[in-house]
């Protein structure tokens, strides 16, 4: 505790390109670009699968399968394979983001899919009965109804990515992982504990931001309790894991 306090209150910890603000910014940059890319892949795919009912088996297996791929191994493999092809400053960045995106897509995909699939069939039928096209049903009924689960997928992914982005430091990138890896390298427990604490705080703050956005975006008629138990369970199963 003392060590942690000393590190956090040392002005040197806060200065320059290796200081806490700079590392937090790097960490957020990695995490945000990962989440945007993963959302661009996961949400449309999840919506499509949920809407059409096609490829359901694929999703379930993919989501479970991806979760079992060890991130560290994948990162090392990606750096060895992609690094020499890329060259320059992106040689380590691209493989790291690639691995993080692979990690983030499954929960986002599962959330979007479960959200659409769990929409009350009555609501869907009513929309069709009102003469909505398949497209309108998707965007005016299913997506709004699926938002709570889409958000829970995004939030799971965000937590997971923020915790895992620390591994990027093991391939010489920045971010909060630097404090963990460097702290380990010179046995500076204060720095390590501080780094871990910052990651946890950052994860909480980001989750809080998502929660606020979710509140603003999601229709008040769609409190999480209203989603079906089956969908909720699926979303719970889509939940995260740190790495």
């Amino acid at each position: 505790m003392n060590l942690l306090w000393r590190w956090l209150t040392d002005p040197a910890s806060w200065e320059g390109s290796a200081g806490i603000p700079a590392r937090v910014a790097e960490h957020l940059a990695y995490s945000a670009s990962t989440l945007v890319l993963a959302a661009l892949i996961g949400i449309p795919l999840g919506l499509w699968i949920g809407h059409t009912g096609r490829g359901r088996v694929l999703v379930v297996n993919l989501v479970n399968g991806m979760r079992s791929v060890p991130t560290l191994g994948l990162l090392f493999a990606a750096v060895l394979v992609l690094g020499p092809l890329l060259g320059g400053d992106i040689a380590f960045l691209v493989p790291s983001i690639f691995v993080l995106v692979l990690l983030a897509v499954p929960p986002i995909l599962a959330g979007a899919y479960a959200g659409v699939e769990g929409v009350d069939p009555g609501a869907r039928d009513a929309a069709r009965g009102m003469g909505m096209s398949s497209r309108e049903v998707l965007f005016r009924v299913e997506v709004p109804c699926a938002l709570p689960l889409i958000f829970s997928g995004l939030r799971s992914a965000a937590l997971q990515v923020i915790a895992t982005a620390t591994l990027a430091a093991s391939v010489s990138l920045g971010g909060l992982g630097r404090f963990l890896i460097d702290g380990q390298a010179y046995r500076d427990y204060g720095q390590m504990a501080g780094g871990a604490l910052l990651v946890a705080v950052l994860a909480m703050l980001v989750d809080l931001v998502f929660a606020v956005v979710q509140r603003l975006v999601v229709s008040p008629g769609l409190a999480p309790a209203r989603t079906s138990r089956r969908a909720a369970r699926r979303a719970a199963a889509a939940a995260l894991s740190p790495t």
Binding site: G83, P84, G87, G88, D89, A91, F92, V171, S172
Partner: peptide, 10 residues
């Protein structure tokens, strides 16, 4: 990593 970073100019 060191070897690659040297080659890359990082």
């Amino acid at each position: 990593l060191t070897v690659q970073a040297l080659k890359n100019g990082q």
